[in-house]
Computed example of a mutant assay.
Amino acid sequence: MEQASAAAQTPPTRPALRKKPARLGRGHFRRFGAFYVMMAPTIVFLLINNYIPMVGSLIAFKNIKFAPGETLFESFLRSPWVGLFNFEFLFKTSDAWLITRNTVLYNAVFIVLNTVIGIAFAIMFNSMKNRFLAKFHQTTMFLPFFMSMVIVSYLVYAFLNNELGLMNKVILPLFGANAVEWYSDPKWWPLILPLVNTWKGIGYYAIIFMAAIIGIDDEYYEAATIDGASKWKQITAITIPLIRPVIIVMVLLQVGRIFNADFGLFWQVTRNAGAIYDTTRVIDTYVYQSFINAGDIGMSSAAGLYQAVVGFLLVFTANLVIRKISKDDALF
């Protein structure tokens, strides 16, 4: 009886009301018009700089032939369609496996080093008690990121020059080792190139990860310290899990360019030495050399489109896998 009377006194719950979809009327634009105005410059910039040029991807399916006095657009309209013929340039060449292997493996190593070392330096900077020294080290490490790859190539050449380089003249003699012809011996470059790439770009990744670490509430670390957790335990149980979304985003952004190599790194730093092509030639440098020799703009466009499509598919697939594992950590 008591349950029945309580149920009688309880007012019936109303069914959940469905939200009506927002209509694009005068009231909508009156309310959100300021935001559309703020978005307009960025949208126009993206359309002009990112989306309209995508029409040029059609060049990859044409055999562009220039005639005297013609513009590129006129040549594009007059040139015949060749289907996937330009893509055969990448897949049927004898160096296809070599350049693809080098591009993918180098970028895979770069992703691992940038992520692991970037997180390590970010944690170290954040743990430093002296704020002045922490800022000084951050600035010093970030400086190479702004250097042109041409400058970096000359710095590397100052170390690796066969006759006057610091390695052959000072460092190797200290250990009783013989001089090395660095630009003629390909076996050293799988170590040199990741080292140079990490030195140049690690400051950028360290700053990104440090910004994420700074956003963590100090109460987590205070509670862990009271419970007797060591520094390593705090890093593995608090820091890494809480910055995991940032780590995933940074890795996905790098995965999207795994088929794109840093042209300056592989062209300038190696000084385009033919003796070390087996370990330094990648898709970008190979396409550039072939374009210089053949002057075929269609083949170059096909290579760029191939890299963009594969990069998009890799990002989409990697995000799909992350979404299956942890939906909250997915990028989209």
Rank of each mutant, 00 (worst) to 15 (best):
L58C: 09
I59A: 15
I59H: 13
I59T: 15
I59Q: 10
A60E: 13
A60Q: 11
F61N: 07
F61I: 11
N63K: 15
I64P: 14
I64E: 13
I64R: 12
I64C: 13
K65V: 15
F66R: 14
F66V: 13
F66M: 15
A67H: 15
P68D: 12
P68L: 11
G69K: 08
E70G: 09
E70T: 15
T71P: 12
T71G: 15
L72T: 07
F73R: 10
E74I: 11
E74L: 06
E74D: 09
S75I: 03
F76E: 09
F76R: 12
R78Y: 08
R78Q: 13
R78T: 10
S79G: 13
P80C: 05
P80V: 05
P80R: 11
L84D: 06
F85L: 05
F85Y: 09
F85V: 02
N86H: 01
N86Y: 07
E88W: 03
E88F: 04
E88I: 00
F89G: 00
F89K: 04
F89V: 01
F91Q: 02
F91V: 07
K92T: 06
K92C: 00
T93L: 00
T93G: 11
S94R: 05
S94Y: 02
S94W: 01
D95Y: 01
A96P: 07
A96N: 00
A96I: 03
W97P: 00
W97E: 01
W97F: 09
L98N: 10
L98Q: 12
L98M: 07
L98P: 01
L98A: 08
L98I: 04
I99Y: 01
I99W: 00
I99N: 01
T100F: 14
R101W: 07
R101P: 00
N102P: 07
N102Q: 06
T103W: 03
V104H: 03
V104N: 05
V104L: 15
V104A: 07
V104K: 02
V104Q: 02
L105V: 12
N107Y: 02
N107A: 05
A108T: 04
A108R: 00
A108F: 12
A108P: 05
V109K: 04
F110C: 00
F110E: 05
F110L: 06
F110N: 10
F110Y: 15
F110S: 12
I111K: 06
I111E: 06
